[in-house]
């Protein structure tokens, strides 16, 4: 078990290191002067900001220093939480801009991942039981996983917000309200949260249901299932074992899918103008706010690494093979 965690942590540290290095490298190794590159694209900025930015960028890039010094400085700034200054919300530091967006991402991602994982697995296991259920579930499930998140968001928004007018179409809460701990405010937050949540939930649900259905069919063909059958164990017990064992590949599937899910959440936020990191990215691209983009990149990486680590811990809890330091494990 110690070896398992040491190995995982080593991989994550390496990953983080590589990611930060890429983050640092790219503006420097692109053709042309990175500072001018940035400023020339940020056309819509007012003159005062442009001047401040030029001075700030030149000194922060420190192009006159040796390359290794630039690299070390980049890491130092990072550990002080200094991700630069946002052009979009000038002169707010990038870290603050991201901090205020982060709760919305968590609000969408955590419930949608947990609920869809739970419901999808249950439903997939249920569908694997009967031919008729299976024949209807399978195509629906495949269509759902093949649906781009943002398109489902667009459809849901169009039907429920525009045509039926049940849910709001944009923002995190009504513009008429000020954030407060009141029922009206909470209700407004929930209403605005529902459609983006549903888009994320439905697509993921399809994937889990199919995955579980396929895994269970494999598990029911496993030797231990046949042995139990030969000993007259009731179907219920065999199915329960198969379900529990099928969770393991599903869990490593979750680790693999995190990147795609995060990307889906980003695009869904854009559809609903939901002010999380995805929406920030769109704004940052449209306004050429590179510091903000770099910051978003780092946050996404850290988030995905943390989530992976949590999955590793869960794996140790559910799979004796990882616990005993044998084979197996998420990634």
């Amino acid at each position: 078990m110690r070896r398992y965690f040491l190995r995982k942590i080593l991989i994550y540290l390496l990953t983080f290191f590589v990611a930060v290095t890429i983050d640092w490298m790219i503006p420097r190794f692109m053709p042309g002067d990175p500072v001018m590159n940035m400023l020339s694209k940020a056309g819509s900025m007012h003159a005062e900001a442009q001047e401040v930015m030029y001075g700030y960028l030149t000194s922060s890039f420190g192009l006159d220093l040796p390359v290794w010094q630039q690299y070390v400085n980049f890491w130092k700034a990072l550990f002080h939480g200094d991700l630069g200054i946002s052009i979009l919300q000038f002169p707010k530091p990038v870290i603050d801009v991201i901090k205020s967006a982060l709760p919305y991402d968590l609000l969408l991602l955590i419930p949608s991942i947990l609920l869809s994982y739970y419901a999808g697995n249950k439903f997939g296991a249920y569908a694997a039981r009967s031919k008729r259920m299976d024949n209807t579930l399978l195509p629906i499930g495949y269509i759902l996983t093949a649906t781009p998140y943002m398109w489902l968001g667009i459809l849901l928004g169009w039907v429920f917000a525009i045509i039926l007018n049940i849910f709001p179409i944009s923002g995190a809460y009504s513009y008429a309200l000020k954030p407060a701990l009141s029922w009206t405010f909470i209700k407004s937050v929930l209403e605005h949260w529902f459609l983006p949540f549903m888009s994320l939930f439905i697509v993921q649900f399809g994937g889990w249901a199919i995955g579980m259905r396929n895994m269970i069919i494999y598990e029911l063909e496993a030797d231990y299932a046949h042995y139990l059958e030969a000993l007259g164990a009731p179907r219920k017990l065999i199915r329960r074992y198969a379900y529990n064992n099928a969770q393991l590949p599903q869990l490593s599937g979750l680790a693999l899918k995190l990147g795609v899910i995060v990307a889906g959440a980003m695009s869904t936020e854009i559809v609903f103008s939901y002010p999380g990191i995805g929406y920030l990215i769109l704004m940052a691209i449209q306004n050429s706010d590179y510091y903000l983009l770099q910051g978003c990149f780092l946050f996404i990486i850290i988030g995905v690494l943390l989530a992976n680590f949590i999955i590793d811990i869960v794996f140790v809890l559910v799979d004796p093979r990882t616990r005993l330091g044998m084979q197996g494990g998420a990634s």
Binding site: V18, M30, N37, G259, V262, L293
Partner: peptide, 24 residues
């Protein structure tokens, strides 16, 4: 295996995000 695992955890789109941002 280590290289594979590293690229596996970095979300594709985050990587593209940073590359694409600097390509005119």
């Amino acid at each position: 295996n280590i290289i594979t695992n590293i690229i596996l955890v970095i979300p594709t789109f985050a990587l593209l995000l940073i590359m694409v941002a600097y390509l005119k």
